[in-house]
């Protein structure tokens, strides 16, 4: 069974924004959607391994800061050139004001 790991406080991320979270040698991106839900994906773009947390969140899309590759951060789906490989997503829950992610 995978453990739930505390990533940040719920208030650490603005609505429609993203934050980087590093844990045990891995890097993740934690998102807060415009409708105040939280999501998590792998932290690096599948095109050139760039930290997605430096990118722009618009609605349910995260755009890579380097070459504008786009993913739906809720599903991990790649949304067009130059990215073609989907992003891995992780379960997220908010408990007592903390954002927890389940790292598989």
């Amino acid at each position: 069974m995978s453990d739930w790991v505390e990533a940040c406080a719920a208030g650490d991320i603005d609505e429609e924004d993203v934050m980087r979270f590093d844990h045990a040698g891995r890097t993740f991106a934690i998102y807060r959607s415009p409708d105040d839900e939280y999501f998590a994906t792998d932290g690096l773009c599948t095109h050139e391994k760039v930290h997605l947390a430096d990118g722009l969140v618009m609605d349910d899309i995260i755009e890579c800061p380097k070459h504008n590759g786009r993913f739906n951060y809720k599903t991990g789906a790649a949304r067009g050139a130059p990215v073609c490989v989907n992003l891995k997503t992780y379960p997220v829950k908010v408990d007592a004001g903390k954002v927890l992610i389940q790292i598989g």
């Binding site: 760039v50 930290h51 800061p65």
Partner: peptide
Amino acid sequence: PGNAVARDIRL
């Protein structure tokens, strides 16, 4: 440095 300007340039 790095991608410091990326988000604002995109906006």
